[in-house]
Design a binder for these strands. Structure first.
Lengths: 338, 338
DNA sequence: CGAATTTTGAGGTGCGTACCTCAAATAGAT
DNA sequence: ATCTATTTGAGGTACGCACCTCAAAATTCG
């Protein structure tokens, strides 16, 4: 049987009350007494029963996901996974809600974060670009005892366990390598399509992509990024124009999470270019199976969500996380392993 | 606040004892009373607090992993992940032990399973080939209230939630597709190396591999599988012989989880073949980074272990599992996304 | 040295459920 | 209607811990 607080008290020669004070680092215990209790913890291999602790505390964990407004399919997947996680984690007393933000308005985000009530929310996962104001607001939340993580995008410079997502540069490099290996050996041009290149994520992907292509596939020329701004007409115009003016387009790399728009236009072209896109959505999945696109670089939305919740919870409990479980992989999907 | 059993009792107009009987479906409750309680559950949206339930029951979950004897690096990874999972799941009162078996001796395995004591073990994850005796023994365990899952290999024909692992045919197909796309366009031969082709997993991988190559890359010829039997001398001999007798080997596909032996010999050959192997181990990882091999098809050992434990636990609690979390992915690693 | 302060102990209550006992109510059989 | 078997209720204890109070003990300070 696992040792309990009672065993600890006996072993340390103190009372239950003192053990309790040490465990929950409440004040009013002399340093050497603390040391004695900690020694007993070591010696007995005491593991605090979080289950019982949370029961006693009547604690439940309430988390908030701040996601950009706007409806790309990837985001929809994320939201669906949050719902799913709510079911899965309900027995463990965890709950998450989604709130949408304008991800280009740091002021609004900072305000929202500042207004959060520690009694209502235990942790926040924030998907937003890296604004100083947001960063500051997150720091202040931490001071008020509300846990935070950056989610999918932004603030990657922070410690790895403060960020739930992939290294976008590596993701771009992965795309680059696949493009290099999949595309024909003969010289050709690569079209890069993004919703916007203002997002740091897109820049990093492009960076990683270019790096690999330049280094190892000099016969391929990467064209300047096309930006769709999410506008169907603009997309159609600029992509068609590119195909028209550049003969020999060997590959298309669709950077952003919303691949549908560009893909519909690209696949309508007569060319037989290698196409690589990001994120697994019903649309990209179908396109991969039908052979319209060649590979998908993804991160698992379910994993992202659960990881964020587990990390937030570990923070609330001041517990270590299991790093290997929380590492988000850059996944490669082709038709066969979908 | 979430409704408790007390609220349920009031809402159903029965006592706590009766609610308890219904929840844990103990006998001694009339059908219509059961119905009344269930209605109250629906109406209040009662979610049973597993945390409190397990506390009250003083329950901990003790699982057993039956793994083949023998020391390939992949297996070592699995064992390491089990250790890790023990730490991570300790607060949730789950524990797992490893026991090694002779995976070619169904009799011994069946005996071992038959001798398991329901008071000592709550669930078993079994990694063994598909023997009828083992299957029967597993069925008998289920009758005695001990949960079972097939782990990584074997009994894939069972329901998906009885099997923790990947579809090896799809994994082979994935390898085939990558081989087809990575290897040069000119005709060439593909060497396939396995420890043994007696294992069903190997057969399925080969099957999937061949399927893709034959269908889409007719210029590639897949040679008969070489079997190393885990013997270094034999491996060296047969692999060198193959390289000597076949000019133009364009690719090497290493089937089994123990890639080290064949890889060391293959990479010593002067050829510049595309090399694809399975499983991520310190060795294959290094080989991928150094460029000696081109791609790795893997399943995440940590995920496998945690998934098995979560599934076993859900079975013990007679709970649904979250299928999307337990789906083991066929991962593709190249240098860039390692 | 005594007073003020800090540290510690003992004990209680509650979290939501499991599980047990004993008695009471109800149903079914004769 | 009487007896028996079944079903139900009331209440208690326990699980391991959090958190509270009050008093006793130890320590520090002037």
């Amino acid at each position: 049987m696992r040792p309990t607080t009672k065993d600890l008290a006996i072993a340390a020669g103190v009372s239950l009350a003192t053990v309790d004070r040490v465990l929950n680092d409440r004040s009013g215990v002399r340093k050497d007494t603390v040391a004695r209790v900690n020694q007993a913890i070591e010696k007995l291999g005491f593991i605090r029963n979080l289950v019982a602790a949370n029961l006693a505390r009547g604690k439940d964990y309430r988390f908030l996901f701040l996601l950009p407004r706007g409806g790309d399919q990837f985001l929809a997947e994320v939201v669906a996974r949050i719902e799913e996680a709510n079911l899965a984690f309900a027995p463990e007393m965890m709950r998450a809600e989604v709130r949408h933000i304008h991800d280009s308005d740091p002021h609004q985000i900072a305000n929202l974060l500042g207004a959060l009530d520690g009694d209502q929310v235990d942790g926040v996962a924030i998907m937003a670009p890296e604004f100083p104001q947001v960063r500051d607001a997150m720091a202040r939340l931490a001071e008020r005892g509300i846990a935070t993580v950056s989610f999918i995008s932004g603030h990657i410079s922070s410690a790895p366990e403060d960020f739930v997502g992939i290294d976008n540069r590596a993701a771009g490099a992965t795309a680059g390598r696949l493009m290099g290996r999949f595309a024909a050996l003969s010289p050709g041009k690569i079209l890069v399509v993004a919703e916007t290149m203002h997002a740091r994520d897109s820049l990093e992907r492009r960076l990683g992509f270019d790096e690999v292509i330049h280094a190892d596939y000099p016969h391929l020329t990467v064209l300047p990024s096309l930006e769709t701004y999410g506008d169907p007409e603009r997309s159609a115009r600029i992509i068609r124009a590119s195909f028209a003016s550049h003969a020999g387009i060997a590959g298309v790399y669709v950077l952003g999470p919303e691949a549908r728009l560009p893909l519909e236009i690209v696949t309508a072209q007569p060319s037989r270019a290698t196409i690589i896109a990001h994120e697994r959505t019903p649309f990209t999945e179908a396109a991969l199976l039908s052979g319209e696109i060649d590979a998908l670089i993804t991160q698992d939305p379910g994993h992202l969500v659960r990881s964020a919740m587990r990390i937030l919870r570990a923070r609330c409990d001041r517990r270590e996380i299991l790093a290997s479980q929380e590492k988000i992989r850059i996944e490669i999907f082709i038709k066969e392993n979908l």
